[in-house]
């Protein structure tokens, strides 16, 4: 009986949290552009401000991956689950003035799926490391509409470099 109560309470607590998240971030997941904007907004902010990692997490399916192609002309791929990404990157974002914004969206929808190209700009300053930069990048998202909301299934991105510029069609 005790076990049953614990399980019931645990289920109730989980449900309450789910309901809270759904209502708190309802607007984020109501459209494709809002979903992709919310990802950028969630970890934008001053170093002194707490970044909203709960909001960030709420955008993704549990098995979502983020894939970064880095290395310029000697490319390598870094694949991480969202949980691993947050664990690894949170300390850096939390000590950094960080701002990221969408430049242009190219969206294709089919059935419950959407394929999105988002070009973005970013600016950061990490005073403790004396490190700052400004730049742009290209992200491709795969999204799905389930349970009356949009989810990020997967994303792959690469930053622009002096040598490799993003084509104008994705920027204007």
């Amino acid at each position: 009986m005790k076990n049953l109560i614990i399980i019931t309470l645990l289920f109730a607590a989980t449900s309450v949290q789910a309901v809270d998240l759904d209502s708190l971030y309802k607007d984020d997941v109501s459209s494709i552009e809002k979903l992709c904007d919310a990802m950028l907004q969630a970890f934008s902010g001053k170093a002194s401000e707490q970044k909203d990692w709960t909001r960030f997490e709420n955008l993704f399916l549990t098995l979502s991956q983020q894939i970064n192609v880095a290395g310029g002309d000697e490319p390598y791929v870094n694949v991480e689950s969202m949980a691993a990404f947050m664990e690894e990157e949170k300390p850096w974002y939390d000590k950094t003035d960080f701002s990221e914004w969408a430049i242009k969206y190219t969206i294709r929808e089919f059935g419950n799926m959407a394929s999105v190209i988002q070009t973005f700009g970013y600016e950061y300053n990490t005073p403790s490391d004396d490190d700052a930069a400004i730049g742009a990048g290209f992200t491709a998202f795969q999204l799905i509409y389930l349970e009356e909301r949009w989810w990020i299934v997967s994303l792959i991105w690469e930053g622009e470099t002096e040598k490799n510029k993003i084509a104008e069609q994705y920027m204007k």
Partner: peptide
């Protein structure tokens, strides 16, 4: 239907890093 691919070029070749597909429905035609 439609297949969405995400792909990366590494070394001297392309890799599929993620794949997603759905069949045609009454509302969505190829």
């Amino acid at each position: 239907g439609v297949l969405f691919y995400q792909m990366a070029f590494v070394g001297d070749r392309w890799f599929i890093t993620n794949l997603m597909w759905q069949s045609e429905t009454g509302d969505s035609k190829v």
